[in-house]
Design a protein around this nucleic acid. Structure first.
Lengths: 209, 209
DNA sequence: TAATATACGGAACTTGGTTCCGCTTGCCAA
DNA sequence: TTGGCAAGCGGAACCAAGTTCCGTATATTA
């Protein structure tokens, strides 16, 4: 399965033959660029049209040919898994950045939760797309918890420290609640999960003293 | 939604204009024949290849053109629902017939359960295909219980009366167990649900005195 | 700078759903 | 019985999406 953002596998490339440990056959720069572009494009496409979005649409968004998708991600599941990991990573890393660039910690938290909701769209599709290979899904889920709960917790901590929200809110619990808001009434036009999540986050806020 | 096996709807056909209640515009004989053939063919195709079997395959099995399928069942869900009702009906009606034609009540029960398992394939597909219109699914489910549990109960009763199985087995519970056997490990080549069901039914049997 | 492996793009092919229309056939009235 | 005709049929044609393949372009290395 495609394993991005980790060291390249043990492929025995056209190594020098020196050490028996394979030298990392670094991919061509354009290939790496395209892979990243595809990950972004796919994530956006999933949010916009669901995980069943046509391959061609993703290719068009990324500005590449369909062949390029298949070279990097032989199956749709490969692509979805890669996007998932990519998103978890991006989401986790976005925490500190948002904290630095937002006016207040609570604003940073709100924006971070927005990213998290985007991410959940992919996650739900993933669960459907990976009915078969549930082992892969399990390990991804663990990864997701490891990376995201601490990120959320630190945002909560910052907001609490700034006196914007009450201390003691559990990150895991909050993320679970957001997740639940995003599942219920999926596809119902009367239900806007994002708005409900907004209310939830607004509700954390303490009245200004 | 296609409503087979009930009186034709209130279509205002080219009536004589006498009563305001519409006269039943009975369908042409070949149309009824084709509809029945399609129901059978679709049921067989679902068992053989799952509910995602191509429309063309079903048409070929039934010996009709694809246009005929679309005329009778505009959407795949229509077809699946119709097959479901048809199967419930056929399954319920098969009980007494099997009882009459089998060597023993227990044999009849075993064969009936076989039909029931075939039917479950459709049922599972239905649940997936009807994510949207869950109301329709609910009412079908009720219909399913009303018709099938008594049928199963009477077979159980006959077998018990013949001294082949212990009395007191609950039909609903047995059907639930069969259903569960058919869900677990779906798609796993190492798991043959039908064999497991066979064991379950064989297990009902009392040692010959 | 030349040689070459790598990667790219997108046309072509495959598969499956959906529509449409000319032909056939069951039904009814005369 | 037969003629008219609307209901119904078959399947070709069309459309949408996935997948493969290969000629071309380019990053990399010598």
């Amino acid at each position: 399965m495609a394993d991005i953002d980790s060291a390249p596998g043990a492929g025995t490339g056209p190594g020098t033959g020196a050490g028996s440990a394979a030298a990392p056959p670094r991919k061509r720069a354009d290939a790496r660029r395209n892979e990243a572009a595809l990950l972004d494009a796919a994530a956006a496409a999933f949010v916009a049209s669901g995980v069943d979005v046509p391959v061609r649409d993703i290719a068009a968004r990324a500005g590449v040919g369909v062949g390029t998708i298949y070279r990097h991600f032989p199956t749709r599941a490969d692509l979805i898994v890669a996007v998932y990991r990519h998103q978890v990573e991006a989401c986790a890393e976005a925490g500190p950045a948002l904290l630095a660039s937002s006016s207040t910690p609570h604003a940073a938290l709100a924006r971070w939760i927005g990213l998290f909701v985007d991410f959940l769209v992919t996650k739900h599709g993933l669960a459907r797309a990976l009915q078969s290979d549930s082992a892969a899904f399990g390990s991804l889920h663990a990864y997701f918890l490891d990376r995201l709960v601490p990120a959320c917790a630190s945002l909560l901590g910052a907001a609490a420290a700034a006196g914007e929200i009450a201390p003691g809110t559990d990150a895991f619990e909050l993320m679970l609640a957001v997740g639940n808001l995003c599942i219920g009434g999926e596809g119902n036009p009367r239900y806007d999960a994002r708005r409900m999540v907004g209310l939830l986050i607004a509700g954390l806020r303490l009245e200004a003293a």
